[in-house]
Write a protein that binds this DNA or RNA. Sequence first.
DNA 1: CTCATACCTCAAGTTCGCTTGAGGTCAAGC
DNA 2: GCTTGACCTCAAGCGAACTTGAGGTATGAG
Lengths: 151, 151
Amino acid sequence: MDRLDLLPIGEVARRSGVSVPTVRFYEERGLITSVRTTGNQRRFERHVLRRIAVVRAGQRFGMGLAEIGEALATLPADHPPTKRDWVRMSSRWHALLTARIEAMERVRDGLSSCIGCGCLSLRSCPVYNHDDELAAEGPGPRRWPPAARDA
Amino acid sequence: MDRLDLLPIGEVARRSGVSVPTVRFYEERGLITSVRTTGNQRRFERHVLRRIAVVRAGQRFGMGLAEIGEALATLPADHPPTKRDWVRMSSRWHALLTARIEAMERVRDGLSSCIGCGCLSLRSCPVYNHDDELAAEGPGPRRWPPAARDA
DNA sequence: CTCATACCTCAAGTTCGCTTGAGGTCAAGC
DNA sequence: GCTTGACCTCAAGCGAACTTGAGGTATGAG
């Protein structure tokens, strides 16, 4: 059964630029899948490289693995995705990214105007008071952005 | 000694919108300071509210507390900062934010062109391969952005 | 057959930015 | 004097995204 065109984990790691434990970790999180050899070793299809590339790209957009996983779930897991699959997924990401960029721009410009007026301590300040639903997110680190609520 | 114009921790928390433990935590990290009453309770000067506002703003820019702390260190800790102090600090942040926004735009636009060519798995892909210094950051969570290395 | 890698699993550690809890003090009103 | 609520300290926990380590198996070259 051990097909030759399947990649062992070290190859996947090398080619995708992540570490071997990270590849296992991504599999554990369901972001990628593998089959096993008769000797219980993982073998990956080539298109997991694309999936890992998507994961890394998503992380650069400030997404968590869970969120990325949802996006990946819209792609076929068994066969390599078609161009249509990519276009669909990535256009959503494009919109999302644009929204986040705009949010950052608002904060940045708020910063300037705020400095102009010297109001940083006031409740009406756009920097101080940009989104006022405080805390209420439970423990764990605060990520940027807290959520994609704006736009 | 217990001055009246100093704020107890609960007031600081309420007015700044963070929790009481968080205020203590920020003090522990040196982001803010306090004096103690005869009964060992914290009392804060009013301008810590501004400092906390700066912390929250910085977090929205994707900065870590350490980085924010460095910025705050350029402000006077003892007396309320002057407008000049703010301008100096915030103009640096403005530049930094602009750089990050531009980086995100590059990634976003790379995403589009990438989809156009269907190359997401290739090493030459601008999304896949945007900054290639991989891993090598030790344990802990990956932050966004990994660093402000670009621009 | 032996040896060096590359792989396996499972458990525990790391950083960040907090929260939660236990157990105790302080301040003010009744 | 008593109770209530805000405060104190210290310790431990959490979620994210991994890394590191211990101890063992597979696979392929010599």
